[in-house]
Simulated scan of single mutants.
Amino acid sequence: MKEVTLIATAAMGIESIVAKEVQTLGYETTVENGKVIFNAPINAIPRCNLWLRTADRVKLVVGEFKATTFDELFEATKALPWEQFIPEDGQFPVSGKSHKSTLFSVSDCQAIVKKSIAERLKLKHGLASNLPETGALYKIEVALLKDIATLTIDTSGAGLHRRGYRVGQGDAPVKETLAAALVLLTNWNPNKAFIDPFCGSGTIPIEAALIGQNIAPGFNRNFASEDWSFIKQKYWDDAFTEAEDLANYDQALDIIGSDIDHRMVEIAKANALEAGLSDLIQWKQMQVSDLNIKRDNGYIVSNPPYGVRLSDREQITKLYRELGDVMKNHSSWSVYIITAFEEFEKYYGHKATKKRKLFNGFIKTDYYQFFGKKN
């Protein structure tokens, strides 16, 4: 087994960012809704889990086939080489989903796939009794779309947004993967100033610092596939060594995170400390109207309150006006704001250069991009 097919799953709207990250690692990609597909050597599994900032998970494709009956699903699943991946003591729970397919009962599909894989593994591993399932975890998914079944194994374990540094959060935190995408969608580089004036628990400034020093986002966490016997330990060792070698810990950064709520500022500080970035980010408690910008050609990237409740509207529009008033005097700065508030431009006082549709969880948002006039 020299090469495998992998899927990097992505939130809607950022598939192209995930694809670019995969391509940067050296793999050619095919982009579909919600996923980026690529063929790669086995050592790509450690590398992709360590380095992909914006993907949700990395899944190993075991097989894909058409199935319109339970018999077809059972036999095609059994024909796949599961023993190449799952040892005789491996745990292999099966989850599923079905969309626009003849086989619409997800629970039945899960049970059939589970039984089929078990029969194949018992046969190939020479076992007469039931499989013990006491070893490493291999989470399998059967996904049916328009009668095409795709069977995958999740290599990541916990979602890739779980970097391991979030010790606290507010009411509506932005996921780490989306925060990284917000930064990567700008032209910011680590020599430029960076401010998040609505920083909350600090996720956007922390992700910016990780990007600025080229620190692999998965460096301080574990992955399900670290326990898989078919992935040599050398591949993991090499991937971690590569990540350490490519990190630029000497890169100076000018990153500020501020929030009106002192409790959130303290949480942000704690998260930055956990991420090992406490000396790289300045945290301030202040109102957006007190924003004091001293450098030219900087970047604001932020996820301000959206004002989903009608009672919040007056406060939210005031915040947007204040931000717009401050930035009128700093035309060299680029401003990137994600919000579900549809009248943002009206209260900010300026029409965006560009807008991009994104989803913050299940909330449909716009990413407003105001490009600065460089001095």
Results as ranks from 00 to 15, higher is better:
residue 31 V to C: 10
residue 65 F to Q: 01
residue 78 K to L: 10
residue 35 K to Q: 11
residue 70 F to S: 12
residue 49 N to Q: 12
residue 35 K to H: 02
residue 63 G to P: 03
residue 65 F to E: 00
residue 82 W to P: 02
residue 17 I to G: 00
residue 69 T to P: 06
residue 49 N to W: 03
residue 81 P to K: 10
residue 23 Q to M: 15
residue 39 N to E: 13
residue 65 F to A: 04
residue 42 I to C: 05
residue 49 N to L: 09
residue 17 I to M: 05
residue 28 E to S: 09
residue 66 K to P: 00
residue 22 V to D: 08
residue 40 A to N: 01
residue 77 T to H: 10
residue 46 P to M: 09
residue 47 R to K: 13
residue 45 I to D: 05
residue 76 A to G: 05
residue 65 F to G: 04
residue 77 T to M: 01
residue 31 V to R: 11
residue 53 R to C: 08
residue 41 P to R: 08
residue 34 G to A: 05
residue 36 V to D: 02
residue 19 A to W: 11
residue 44 A to Q: 02
residue 38 F to I: 10
residue 19 A to Q: 04
residue 23 Q to R: 15
residue 41 P to C: 06
residue 19 A to E: 00
residue 59 K to R: 15
residue 32 E to Q: 15
residue 27 Y to P: 02
residue 63 G to I: 06
residue 29 T to W: 07
residue 25 L to G: 01
residue 35 K to N: 03
residue 75 E to R: 07
residue 80 L to K: 07
residue 46 P to S: 11
residue 85 F to R: 00
residue 64 E to Q: 15
residue 37 I to M: 08
residue 33 N to C: 02
residue 73 L to E: 01
residue 25 L to V: 04
residue 74 F to C: 00
residue 24 T to P: 07
residue 25 L to N: 03
residue 40 A to G: 03
residue 60 L to D: 07
residue 52 L to P: 05
residue 57 R to L: 04
residue 74 F to Y: 12
residue 79 A to G: 13
residue 74 F to D: 11
residue 43 N to A: 12
residue 86 I to Y: 01
residue 52 L to K: 04
residue 87 P to G: 13
residue 86 I to C: 06
residue 49 N to T: 03
residue 44 A to G: 05
residue 37 I to L: 14
residue 86 I to H: 05
residue 60 L to Q: 07
residue 56 D to P: 04
residue 57 R to K: 15
residue 68 T to L: 00
residue 79 A to F: 10
residue 84 Q to M: 09
residue 22 V to G: 05
residue 25 L to Q: 15
residue 46 P to Q: 13
residue 52 L to C: 11
residue 28 E to L: 06
residue 39 N to P: 04
residue 81 P to N: 13
residue 69 T to Q: 06
residue 47 R to F: 01
residue 39 N to K: 15
residue 76 A to T: 08
residue 49 N to H: 11
residue 74 F to L: 06
residue 53 R to Y: 13
residue 84 Q to T: 12
residue 55 A to H: 11
residue 62 V to C: 03
residue 84 Q to E: 13
residue 75 E to P: 01
residue 57 R to Y: 07
residue 41 P to V: 06
residue 29 T to D: 04
residue 17 I to L: 06
residue 69 T to L: 06
residue 20 K to R: 13
residue 21 E to G: 14
residue 51 W to G: 01
residue 30 T to K: 09
residue 16 S to E: 15
residue 53 R to S: 12
residue 48 C to S: 15
residue 45 I to H: 03
residue 71 D to C: 04
residue 52 L to E: 03
residue 39 N to T: 14
residue 87 P to M: 01
residue 37 I to W: 08
residue 42 I to M: 10
residue 77 T to D: 07
residue 78 K to P: 00
residue 48 C to L: 12
residue 18 V to I: 10
residue 62 V to P: 00
residue 78 K to A: 14
residue 48 C to V: 09
